[in-house]
């Protein structure tokens, strides 16, 4: 199946729920204890494989973040904080308890921002190559600036797996193009400046006291393994697990291995 067809198929399961007046695109899949899955910069559709794998052991709640995919973006939303508070409302809305929170990349940043505020409904946390801590200092940049890179360089920085098919954009269905445009705009809104971080997050990470695992691709060229150190230091009790033959998009390069680690951890 082409990427385009499998994306369309995956999104068929999406429903629309209204939480605090916000119409959210949400995929609920599988059976077992609740797992809140927070996608990365390429939208929930980019994580379809790992979501399907996790649904074998969990009831996975996989929303499109407000502004991404088919989820509304309230005009007042402008920071990751807004998303974090919204997801606390989501946990209340479904009255979820003992939740495993999993976030990759941008979603890892959102997960951290949720948990520094309130961990009462959460039992454990998995951060896959999260962003959100300082990405540059003075002239030294630690996380590659996707806005300054050629699209091909961005693709190479994101994943080791070659991009599946080379269908020209113009030939994709309009609904998919709209998702691509909305995802890119939302990443820009939340991550343009400061670039993909909250300068206050490092002061608050110690508040996350639930068991935490950090997953990191050994060949992550967007946020190199060295960047993980500040998360390890800030979280205190977190365990860092690396994955071989894996870039930034862990959910693309090593979905089976990552899902297995999450299942074992839980």
């Amino acid at each position: 199946m082409s990427t385009e067809a499998s994306t369309a198929d995956f999104l068929k399961a999406a429903e629309r729920v209204e939480i605090q007046g916000l119409k959210l695109e949400l995929i609920v899949k599988g059976a077992g204890s609740p797992l809140l899955f927070l996608h990365g910069m390429d939208g929930v559709e980019g994580c379809s494989r790992i979501i399907d794998l996790l649904a074998r052991d969990f009831t996975v709640y996989a929303p499109s973040h407000p502004g991404f995919g088919g989820s509304e973006l309230p005009r007042a939303f402008s920071t990751i904080d807004d998303l974090a508070y919204f997801y606390l409302d989501l946990l209340d809305h479904f009255d979820l308890r003992g939740v495993t929170v999993v976030g990759f990349s941008l979603g890892g940043w959102i997960a951290a921002e949720i948990l520094v505020k309130d961990t009462s409904r959460v039992s454990r946390l998995v951060l896959g190559a999260p962003l959100g801590l300082r990405t540059a200092e003075g002239r030294v940049r630690q996380v590659a600036d996707i806005f300054m890179l050629h699209p091909k360089e961005v693709a190479a920085a994101m994943q080791l797996t070659p991009t599946a098919d080379n269908v020209p954009l113009a030939e994709l269905p309009e609904s998919l193009l709209e998702r691509i445009a909305r995802n890119a705009e939302a990443v820009c809104l939340f991550g343009w400046s400061p670039y993909l971080y909250n300068p206050k997050l490092h002061l608050r990470l110690h508040r996350i006291r639930v068991p935490t695992v950090l997953l990191w691709g050994e060949q992550d060229r967007l946020a190199p393994l060295d960047y993980a150190k500040s998360f390890v230091a800030g979280l205190g009790q977190a365990r860092l697990e690396t994955l071989e033959a894996c870039g930034h998009r862990i959910y693309v390069d090593r979905p089976e291995a990552a899902a297995a680690r999450i299942v074992n951890f839980a």
């Binding site: 806005f147 300054m148 890179l149 050629h150 699209p151 961005v154 020209p168 954009l169 113009a170 994709l172 309009e174 193009l177 709209e178 691509i180 445009a181 909305r182 890119a184 705009e185 990443v187 820009c188 809104l189």
Partner: peptide
Amino acid sequence: LDVQFRNPPGFNPVKANVKMMQAG
């Protein structure tokens, strides 16, 4: 001018960006 600087995400509305992607 390198391609990534021509139309940064969000600078144009989503509808306009979709049209641009379709038009080539």
